[in-house]
Amino acid sequence: MSKSSAKASTRPADKRGRKPPARPRTPAAREVERLRGGSARRRWTIIAVSVVAVLAVVGLYLVYQSSQGQQGGTATSGGSGYRHVAGQPGIGTAAPAFTLASSAGGQVSLADFRGKSVLLYFQEGLSCQPCWDQIKDLEQNQAAVKSAGIDAVVSITTDPANLIAQKMADEKLTTPVLSDPTLAVSRAYQANSYGMMGDMRDGHSFILVGPDGMIRWRADYGGSPDYTMFLPAQKMLTDLAQERKP
């Protein structure tokens, strides 16, 4: 083949330098392209959903860790086997003073128990039947409570005193239950940091105040993730015996 014919064969068909028009795609080719595009979109959707799920799990974990820090630090199961923490004010701290309306009528103050050991039981209230079962169980184990060095038990919740009185009558309970509708006392003891209703209600907290007005033991059982709203009185007394300070 001559050089002139070789050169001629490499020249574009269009002498103006324009590219020849693309050949039209067949229906089969268009379908393949559509399927490839749909597959790519699905892959990116799956990736995006996976990333969001991972971020959500990480976020929940951080919130949980933060709430654990606010609730008093490391949890323990103690001798009872029931998970709990000791919030603040804690052992060795002066118990905040209070005066609240009682379900039995009149008002009750912490100062009324000066010289005695009083067990404060903060609980969720009318909507929490296990909380009232807890009071009933404490009353049924009164001898064991006394043997543990507890002179009196007083419960505190956030419902109105008249409704508490009706509930006490229905349940045939005699333990004084005090009304803290503004949560002023609950917040002073940070007992509203351990419930299922956020900070709107108390959780399930026991605080033993000694004869000198100092906190000798504290156990907050109502926090996440278990949200314990009842434990047998004997189990609570087991933790008290192991964890209280003289």
Rank of each mutant, 00 (worst) to 15 (best):
V58I: 04
A101W: 05
L100P: 03
Y64E: 04
E139C: 04
I135T: 01
V108T: 00
T45Q: 15
I135M: 03
S77T: 12
R41P: 07
G87V: 00
Q65F: 11
R42P: 01
S77L: 08
Y82C: 06
I46M: 12
V51A: 15
T74R: 14
G78Y: 02
H84Q: 08
V49W: 14
H84S: 09
A56G: 09
G81D: 07
V57S: 14
G69K: 10
V85R: 14
S117C: 05
T76Q: 13
S109G: 15
V52P: 10
W132F: 07
L126S: 06
L55D: 11
V85L: 12
S50N: 10
Q129P: 13
S102Y: 11
V85A: 06
L62S: 11
A101C: 06
G92F: 12
A48F: 15
A104R: 13
I91D: 05
I46T: 04
T74Q: 13
L110C: 09
T45P: 04
G92V: 05
Q68I: 10
G59R: 09
F113C: 06
D137H: 14
L60D: 07
A95H: 04
P96N: 13
Y121I: 01
Q129M: 08
P130L: 04
R42A: 06
A111T: 06
Q65N: 12
S109H: 11
L100V: 04
R42T: 12
T99C: 08
Q68Y: 10
R114K: 15
S109Y: 03
C128P: 03
S66R: 13
A75Y: 09
G59S: 13
D133N: 12
G125H: 12
G115F: 03
A104S: 15
K116R: 08
G69R: 14
G69I: 01
A111H: 03
R42D: 07
Q123I: 00
T45E: 15
V85Q: 10
G125N: 07
G87S: 09
P89A: 12
A143M: 04
G115Y: 07
S66W: 10
A101H: 07
H84I: 01
D112K: 15
A101S: 12
T45C: 13
S66Q: 14
V51M: 14
I47Y: 15
V51T: 10
T93S: 14
L60V: 11
D137Q: 05
Y121L: 12
V118Q: 07
Q71M: 04
V54E: 08
F122V: 02
A48Y: 14
Q88L: 11
Q129E: 05
L100I: 05
A143D: 10
G59I: 08
E124P: 08
R41H: 12
V49H: 10
G90I: 00
V118M: 06
V49D: 03
G87Q: 04
V118E: 00
L119H: 00
L60S: 04
L119I: 01
L120R: 03
A97S: 14
R42W: 11
Q65S: 09
L62R: 10
A40R: 15
A101Q: 03
K116Y: 09
K116A: 03
V85I: 11
V58P: 02
Q134K: 15
A111G: 13
A40I: 11
S117D: 05
Q129Y: 07
G69A: 08
A40W: 04
R43G: 03
L120T: 01
G59T: 00
T45M: 12
V51I: 14
G125I: 00
K136Y: 06
A53T: 03
